[in-house]
Design a protein around this nucleic acid. Structure first.
Lengths: 151, 151
DNA sequence: TGCAACAGTGGACGCGGTCGACCGCACCCT
DNA sequence: AGGGTGCGGTCGACCGCGTCCACTGTTGCA
């Protein structure tokens, strides 16, 4: 994971469909050696995949919300996490410190859809209460934050 | 935006480096027509780009936190948003309904790094207070949620 | 000094992306 | 009903890219 690798990762974060030839020109190496490095980055788990970035609102998912999940006493964390995974509208799920045990980011088509999701969450065994925060606008999402110099 | 387009979007969300030939075989069309459709999806703003998915912890960004930002009375929303944008560690920024005006998702290398970010946020003009929730573990992130049938 | 391991280079081959020309269909207007 | 138009798709050809393999140069170590 040297400077060349960091450059490659930056370039692929900006454009996941960059050709190996382009990347080779960018870092001043030959094509095969760039291929080697990227394969190694993938196998090391640095690059976990390549995704098309899609605007959810164009797919009819205009509502974004953050939902805090409070558990009942004696709830099984793993069990709740497993049941949360069955709710397809949850895009992100963090286990957090604080009064709330999980924070979820969900997408819905409209407020009615969001209400249905909240209802489903509340019916999960072990979930005591939810606290929903609606995003009125998304200033930005998934911005590329700089890679720290050291490892 | 018909069923074929949805299939293409799903496929490119799963693998952003899929070749047009693969996609053509998948949907049963010729290469050029798939290229046309994808170009149209890009120009329509459905597909906004292609990104390599990177595991932040392998880059030395092991700490994820959600930070709620409370504003002072008479704070200028746009001005605060602009100053938040200058903080590179903020990966997502939503303007939300509720006592907090913004919710941020930030990444830091360690708790000390997070403390520095919180300090910087608190010094932004118009920011009255912040409330930080640390993610102890990420159950999942950026999961592909299904595309609703209708548009 | 000699050997081994590793990273990179260069060339050759096959496949994929791209472009232009053509086709068929649906829609519309008269 | 007929003709025109535009759109979406196919086909074929050319160029460039990805991939594989053999070779090279360097570093580290015995």
């Amino acid at each position: 994971m040297d400077a060349v690798d960091r450059t490659l990762v930056e370039a692929l974060r900006a454009n996941g469909r960059a050709t190996y030839a382009e990347l080779a020109r960018l870092v001043g190496l030959s094509g095969p050696s760039v291929t080697d490095r990227i394969n190694r980055l993938e196998q090391a788990g640095v690059i976990t995949g390549y995704r098309a970035a899609v605007d959810p609102s164009t797919l009819g998912l205009g509502v974004t919300a953050l939902i805090g999940v409070l558990l009942s006493d004696a709830a099984d964390l793993d069990d709740v996490a497993r049941r949360l995974k069955d709710v397809p509208e949850i895009e992100d799920c963090w286990f957090v410190a604080g009064e709330e045990s999980f924070v979820l980011k969900v997408r819905a088509g409209d407020p009615v859809g969001l209400e249905k999701i909240i209802g489903r969450l509340g019916r999960i065994r072990g979930v005591a209460r939810t606290r929903t925060t609606i995003a009125l606008s998304t200033k930005w999402e998934a911005r590329q934050i700089p890679i720290p110099a050291e490892d």
